[in-house]
């Protein structure tokens, strides 16, 4: 083989080796870091195993927020207006975001414990009050479909 051909071959081998290693590592990393998302109704129907990490999204139910006076523990209920899931969070792992309020859409990360309580490690609320995250919106839409008869009620709640 001529030297420049040999160089070119080495180059191609080098690049394809690098690429395949990277693609393999990337896919592996991707598969390890997928966070599934479930709606309160899916959780209530037992689609998630206790202990499995996932994200849940919905509205903070009116009147459900309880903050302890002596420590940083917080409890509230998230709802898609069909099912409710109780959530426990401790602000020792981070103060709740500014826009966390009753009636506001939130997304929480964590897992369900043996008592059916979602133990959140992180709670996200969005910075734009007009903006609803796709997850929360999807949860609401799914619930609306399930609950077509009560859709007027849901709309009323949403427009509040």
């Amino acid at each position: 083989m001529k030297p420049h051909r040999r160089n070119r071959l080495a180059l191609i081998l080098f690049i394809s080796f690098g690429l395949s290693v990277t693609v393999g590592l990337t896919l592996f990393a991707l598969s390890q870091n997928i966070n599934m998302f479930f709606t309160p109704t899916q959780v209530a129907q037992g689609e998630v195993q206790p202990g499995q990490a996932f994200r849940i999204g919905g509205m903070v139910k009116e009147g459900s927020l309880v903050k302890n006076e002596l420590d940083l523990a917080v409890r509230f209920t998230t709802t898609d207006f069909v099912s409710d899931v109780p959530i426990a969070y401790n602000e020792a792992s981070g103060i709740l975001p500014d826009l966390f309020r009753e009636g506001q859409g939130i997304v929480a990360e964590g897992s369900v414990d043996a008592f059916g309580i979602f133990q959140a490690t992180k709670v996200l609320a969005k910075h734009d009050e007009n903006y609803m995250s796709p997850e929360v919106k999807a949860a609401m839409d799914a619930a609306k479909l399930l609950n077509a008869d009560e859709s007027d009620l849901v709309n009323e709640e949403l427009t509040k």
């Binding site: 990393a29 991707l30 390890q32 997928i34 966070n35 997850e135």
Partner: peptide
């Protein structure tokens, strides 16, 4: 299905 990819993926790559 709705999913999200966390920072660990990006850091690992």
């Amino acid at each position: 299905k709705l999913i999200s990819i966390g920072p660990p993926y990006f850091n690992a790559i």
